[in-house]
């Protein structure tokens, strides 16, 4: 079942064409990786998929709903889409668990319940004991895991990750990918942007972007 679909999507800023006629689909339970050199439009693709940006032409559909018709994109970001960035993911003045409960609180969920949900997800990512610590007391890997936890809280169907392993060493990076993979296997749709092929290899499909267009894609055959 398709979670997000980009149909013939283009995005340009004045003269610059960041994306050109891109067709992409991510189904539930699938991890799709997007690779490309800098300037190829990877982050733009991610922003469009999550509703942070709107295309100049083409449609972006999230769970069957055309994003252009959605009035409250912010609500979408709170409930349906989770974001993980390379850095500056967490708010330094909030503890780990408060960061994770943030989208739920923003959505109006009562603090007590949001905190319970957040603790559960932190448990999943293995950081339950760090719940009360502040981001500057955590290591880089731990911070990213908290960010992923925040992207997962509340049963979100789509997780968008923009170079989540950027600043991490190999071992930690693998852990992160393991988490994302696990989430995909559990039923979410995960769209991952990376420039490291080793991490892209965790995906079911790897899409290569060149100059805003999809040049090729590597599909892992179904074995199941």
């Amino acid at each position: 079942m398709t979670v997000v679909r980009l149909a013939n999507v283009s995005r340009s800023y004045g003269e610059v064409h960041a994306l050109r006629n891109v067709d992409l689909e991510v189904a539930a339970g699938r991890l799709v990786a997007v690779m490309g050199p800098s300037g190829s439009g990877k982050s733009t693709l991610l922003n469009l998929a999550g509703g942070l940006d709107l295309p100049t032409s083409g449609t972006v559909t999230l769970e069957g709903v055309d994003l252009a018709a959605v009035k409250d994109l912010a609500a979408l970001r709170r409930r349906s889409v989770g974001y993980v960035f390379q850095d500056l993911n967490l708010i330094p003045s909030l503890t780990a668990v408060e960061n994770v409960m943030l989208p739920r609180e923003l959505d109006g969920v009562r603090a007590r319940q949001a905190r319970a949900e957040a603790l559960a997800v932190l448990e999943e990512v293995g950081l339950a004991e760090a719940a009360g610590r502040f981001p500057d007391e955590l290591s880089g890997g731990q911070r990213q895991r908290v960010a992923i936890a925040r992207a997962l809280v509340g049963e979100r169907r789509l997780v968008l990750a923009d170079e989540p392993t950027g600043a991490l060493d190999t071992r930690t990076g693998d852990e992160i990918l393991q988490l994302l993979r696990g989430r995909a296997d559990a039923g979410a749709a995960v769209l991952l942007v990376t420039h490291e092929s080793r991490y892209a290899a965790w995906a079911d499909r790897v899409v290569f972007l060149r100059d805003g267009e999809i040049a090729d894609s590597a599909l892992l055959e179904e074995v199941r």
Partner: peptide, 10 residues
């Protein structure tokens, strides 16, 4: 590259 990637995925 695509083929290599597929291999790596496997």
């Amino acid at each position: 590259r695509t083929a290599s990637m597929r291999a790596m995925q496997e």
